[in-house]
Design a protein around this nucleic acid. Structure first.
Lengths: 115, 115
DNA sequence: GTGACGCATCGACGTTCGTCAATATCATTC
DNA sequence: GAATGATATTGACGAACGTCGATGCGTCAC
């Protein structure tokens, strides 16, 4: 529910192919923002854990042990992933469920190698 | 000529899909290393400039003006891209030519969205 | 060999990042 | 409403990053 619209319009601006013409500043920034979010091993791992979970969602309690980090640290990484638009956060009762924003990874992949 | 083998074997280790099972530490680190290299707007732009150049190669002198950075700074960013295995550096006479390592972007894209 | 040129390295700087312990917030249960 | 449990926020710390000016190192032309 709380996909922060950090990118003005992710579907449009996020995915100008890197290999098709020189990117302008905003395109390069939008891409770099998402790649930077993926630039930490723990965040990559967190993302894969979510993707591998049944229902493609997980709460912090499921994430804290596999990466071997403190709960606040995991919470911090998840915030970054949400702010980057890669992950969505949904509060259900006491738990916060995180899921990968549909299509984002495909869009990013498309920016790296069109079709 | 100087593709640093920062990744033990890039073609094998670099591209375990993020969405297919939990990544182990080395897989996550290998991916994060490349994504981190893409986590700066100027480096994304540099990459796109190289890709857009004829022959898919460029020297620092071609790169310094479009990004509006100093020559040492561009040189530093290029070093990071080379160390990440994304770009190859070839010295020809006085000039150093940079080109995107063939297949790397496709592999990275494959790690984000298999197929 | 002397000069000019292209690029890398070095040293420094302010900024951002990753991490934790401590604490706050919010929803549930009693 | 008090207690409990799951997350988020704060504050602090060292490490890493992005940038620049100054300098060093090959290469080419004369």
């Amino acid at each position: 529910m709380t996909v922060l619209p950090v990118l003005p319009s992710a579907a449009v601006a996020c995915c100008s192919p890197v290999t098709a013409g020189v990117l302008d500043d905003s395109q390069a920034e939008a891409l770099a923002r998402m790649f930077k979010a993926l630039g930490d091993p723990n965040r990559v791992k967190l993302l894969s854990i979510i993707a591998a979970s049944e229902g493609q969602e997980a709460c912090v309690c499921d994430l804290t042990e596999p990466v071997g980090l403190t709960q606040p640290t995991v919470s911090h990484h998840m915030k970054l992933l949400v702010e980057a638009g890669l992950v969505a956060r949904e509060q259900r009762g006491r738990w916060a469920y995180f899921s990968i924003v549909p299509g984002v990874l495909d869009s990013l992949a498309g920016a790296l190698s069109p079709r």
